[in-house]
Simulated scan of single mutants.
Amino acid sequence: MTGWAERQARAASLLTGRSAPRLADGKRTTAATSHAAAPTNSKHASTTASQAEVRALAVPEQERPALTARLHEAAVIPGPTPARFPKLIATLCLLATAGSAAIIPPSAPQPPLLPVLPAAVAEPVRYGMRVQDERFPERIKPFRATEPSEGWLVVGASGQRWRLPDALPAADVQVSPDGRKLAYYSLTRMQVVIHDITTGALQPVPTPFYEVRLSFSPDSRLLAMEQPEEVIVTDTRSGAVRRVPGDELLVGWAGDRLVLSHSFDGIKIVALDASLIAKIQAPELDDQGNATVSPDGKEIAVPSGQRVLILGQDGKVLRKIHPHLPPTAELRRVYRWAGPTEVVLYAPGYRSATIYVMNVHTGATRPVPYAPEVAGRDITIGAI
């Protein structure tokens, strides 16, 4: 038997605590016979190789000398060995040294797939979120146990999660305020669709683009879709389509009227016939994507540090509200109004909820259920 076979037998004896097995010539393998088979300069080479293997195994520094000596004594490293075996045998010796506590767990089974959102469901959708997380690719598998590695999923009022494989991951997805409709760019139809999850009906929206901003009206009836030189408004009940000309960016809604960007620090409210209702300008509106207009169009909520500013139609600050949030929560965004006196906030924090509903007069807040998981993700708010 070769010197390599002798070293294998010696390593096995270390693991089992039994004497080394006899070889074909009737002799037992020993550290001495293993050393005898090695070149004259193998002692230095084995020590260096042993130390390298121990470092590769991330053994604590104080334990390295003893383990290195053990490897050297076992003669599993010295001499010419196949390149693929030293680390394996060093690992076996490490297990023998560490005892029964060092157990390599079996490979975890693949988690089950998340279910696909059915055509129709009984419960409304609270929110949807886009997952694009490559930090833990071994833990987040596409559309697996917890969530897809890239794609959209939605969460119902009960906490049930579904994936949306037909929604283009890079495009916008919106949930209506009543949680009964979804709007997204369909990969199968190659166009934007409105999915009524109560009936299962799919309503196509005419557009050749997928990089569009979508926004449902507060009553969930109308869907606005931003286009290069117009905003297309679709009635989700009748299917009627109206086109509002203009190259302004879509900000959202004020009741049944559109809110569009006006300038770097201004917005304007227009009717669906494109007639101007109001033009509001203020330094606080330098990021219109963070501003949201009340259903009656008279107040605008915009975040400012850890406060929410309430502006009037003249652009003046009416109130400065300090939301009642946990100490670790950080106010990032005001999503939309949730009625005449409440707004939806995005305020992630350590071990706390991330979505809150705030009273615009008192600052009192209430967390949205099942929302802690959405921190740092692209989300869309539905029924709250």
Score class of each variant (00 low, 15 high):
residue 292 T to D: 13
residue 301 A to S: 10
residue 82 P to H: 10
residue 101 A to R: 13
residue 133 D to G: 05
residue 251 V to H: 06
residue 252 G to Q: 08
residue 227 Q to I: 02
residue 283 P to W: 11
residue 92 L to V: 06
residue 9 A to E: 04
residue 87 K to S: 05
residue 276 L to I: 07
residue 332 R to I: 11
residue 64 R to W: 12
residue 60 P to C: 06
residue 206 P to G: 11
residue 242 R to S: 15
residue 52 A to S: 14
residue 88 L to Y: 03
residue 24 A to I: 03
residue 253 W to Y: 07
residue 2 T to C: 13
residue 267 I to W: 01
residue 284 E to S: 14
residue 175 V to H: 05
residue 356 Y to G: 03
residue 171 A to F: 08
residue 77 I to F: 05
residue 209 F to V: 08
residue 378 D to G: 12
residue 8 Q to V: 10
residue 301 A to G: 11
residue 48 T to K: 11
residue 384 I to K: 01
residue 216 F to R: 01
residue 193 V to S: 03
residue 172 D to W: 12
residue 122 A to E: 06
residue 309 L to G: 01
residue 50 S to K: 00
residue 180 R to Q: 12
residue 196 D to L: 02
residue 231 V to G: 07
residue 71 L to C: 08
residue 305 G to Q: 14
residue 326 P to L: 15
residue 227 Q to A: 07
residue 124 P to C: 05
residue 18 R to N: 09
residue 56 A to M: 10
residue 250 L to P: 01
residue 282 A to L: 11
residue 225 M to S: 10
residue 257 R to I: 02
residue 381 I to K: 00
residue 337 W to V: 03
residue 47 T to L: 11
residue 305 G to I: 13
residue 127 Y to V: 00
residue 352 S to D: 10
residue 246 G to P: 06
residue 284 E to T: 12
residue 156 G to Y: 01
residue 351 R to V: 02
residue 233 V to A: 07
residue 236 T to E: 09
residue 356 Y to A: 02
residue 175 V to M: 08
residue 87 K to V: 05
residue 192 V to W: 02
residue 144 R to K: 13
residue 102 A to Q: 11
residue 142 P to F: 13
residue 119 A to F: 04
residue 188 T to Q: 10
residue 81 T to C: 02
residue 3 G to M: 05
residue 99 G to Y: 12
residue 305 G to A: 12
residue 73 E to I: 04
residue 293 V to D: 06
residue 361 H to F: 12
residue 263 S to I: 00
residue 20 A to V: 13
residue 214 L to M: 09
residue 297 G to Q: 04
residue 363 G to W: 06
residue 354 T to L: 08
residue 235 D to Q: 10
residue 78 P to D: 00
residue 219 D to A: 08
residue 372 P to L: 03
residue 210 Y to M: 06
residue 25 D to V: 03
residue 128 G to C: 08
residue 309 L to P: 01
residue 248 E to F: 09
residue 46 S to D: 07
residue 51 Q to F: 03
residue 177 P to D: 03
residue 351 R to K: 09
residue 281 Q to Y: 07
residue 330 E to L: 14
residue 145 A to G: 15
residue 42 S to F: 03
residue 238 S to F: 12
residue 162 W to K: 03
residue 302 V to G: 02
residue 180 R to N: 11
residue 289 G to W: 14
residue 173 V to R: 10
residue 88 L to R: 02
residue 104 I to W: 00
residue 269 I to R: 04
residue 304 S to D: 07
residue 145 A to R: 15
residue 318 L to Y: 11
residue 245 P to N: 11
residue 88 L to K: 01
residue 267 I to L: 15
residue 26 G to Q: 00
residue 6 E to P: 00
residue 84 R to C: 04
residue 107 S to K: 15
residue 280 I to C: 06
residue 172 D to T: 07
residue 71 L to G: 01
residue 375 A to R: 14
